[in-house]
Design a protein around this nucleic acid. Sequence first.
DNA 1: AAATATTTTTAGACTAATCTAAAAATTGTA
DNA 2: TACAATTTTTAGATTAGTCTAAAAATATTT
Lengths: 220, 220
Amino acid sequence: MYSFTEENYLKAIYKLQEQSSEAINTNAIAISIQTKAASVTDMIKKLSEKKLLEYEKYKGVVLTELGKKVAIETVRKHRLWETFLHNKLNFTWDAVHDIAEQLEHIQSQELIDKLDDFLGFPSHDPHGDPIPGKNGEIKESNFVILSELMEGETGIISGVVNHSSLFLKHLESNELILGKRIMVEEVVAFDNSFQVKIEGKKILQLSNEVARNILVKKMK
Amino acid sequence: MYSFTEENYLKAIYKLQEQSSEAINTNAIAISIQTKAASVTDMIKKLSEKKLLEYEKYKGVVLTELGKKVAIETVRKHRLWETFLHNKLNFTWDAVHDIAEQLEHIQSQELIDKLDDFLGFPSHDPHGDPIPGKNGEIKESNFVILSELMEGETGIISGVVNHSSLFLKHLESNELILGKRIMVEEVVAFDNSFQVKIEGKKILQLSNEVARNILVKKMK
DNA sequence: AAATATTTTTAGACTAATCTAAAAATTGTA
DNA sequence: TACAATTTTTAGATTAGTCTAAAAATATTT
Ligand SMILES: [Mn+2]
Ligand SMILES: [Mn+2]
Ligand SMILES: [Mn+2]
Ligand SMILES: [Mn+2]
């Protein structure tokens, strides 16, 4: 139905729209998709003709309902494939994204429905991101960033803000993986670093940079 | 490494080469790949420059070792994905081919290795075709077509010659599926049709056309 | 408000893959 | 062997997606 490239543009614009509330400008898309502004102008004209977004010259773009639907379907496919790669094929969580970037463009509604079923209708992908449902519904997560926890508070690691391979590998090598319980023992006033305890055992020192990129579900 | 289109050409030429032993001519490729002869000429020039095949003007093409390797890898990917779709996602055997045509072009050696492992290193795909190994080895099957069996002989259904969706659906609706034991009760002299018994129960009348398109492993 | 800087669009070109129509080569037949 | 039929190649166009360089519009400073 829509090309590889069209789906990638829609997904990129959708993700930018999630953060900004204003119309998305050409440059932002160019940076996000690693291409040139001139190419973006060409493509958004085309997407606009196909009623996937609204485009006003020099004013940026906003996805239509149709465009948003296609974007969310692509995100759904991406996250289901990531889950498959991690849960069934034993890929580490830092390796799944690049392959899912390819798999998300396979065209077959039945394939995605059956994959979803096979995976047991997972709610979140290996990075803790919610997987949109068949009808596009996205469950809100009530996760907070670890650096918001007070001394003595506990959370379950539930996601990441930074998705870079480097960061994910760093977390994994320190047993900071999804589902682990983590308790803040001390917030060091000097550099805002965090001393934490993982599952009653290991004590770790986390830089503020790291603490700001881990999402936890707060326990009371 | 190689584009979607290049892989499709190599696979098509490989399959034609399996049957003919002579150089493969332009028209045969055009028909097999559903394109025009002029397009084929352009593409084989390109594949020749990339050392994937040897091309002599007006004389057709022969794959090089490299070209054959890429073709076999593509066949391997195709058949592993078909097996995944059938065995894990419960697609019927007539539905797997079209989706595998897309999946076979996903680029990741690690993905294929892990998929192979996940499936338990299957030797044959859902249509009974052998799955090439990681190093390109293809096991010979000693299957014969059902119409070669004599009255009283028994075979295990092990593959199909015709891969069309129509034929596969027809077989399935008659319980003629891989693994079933089938015994030839009578070969009707008039039209060379076959009266067969499946697994000790059902008796079926198969046209010669059908019998010529079923592969069986002969039992003694 | 004018000048300057930045962003966006346009113009024109390029690549991969395809097509149609015409020319050239090969094959089959009288 | 010559003529006709078929196959293959070439020439020139097209489409999707991309790029660079230049022009136009918008935003920021003075
Ligand atoms: Mn991802
Ligand atoms: Mn993810
Ligand atoms: Mn197939
Ligand atoms: Mn098959």
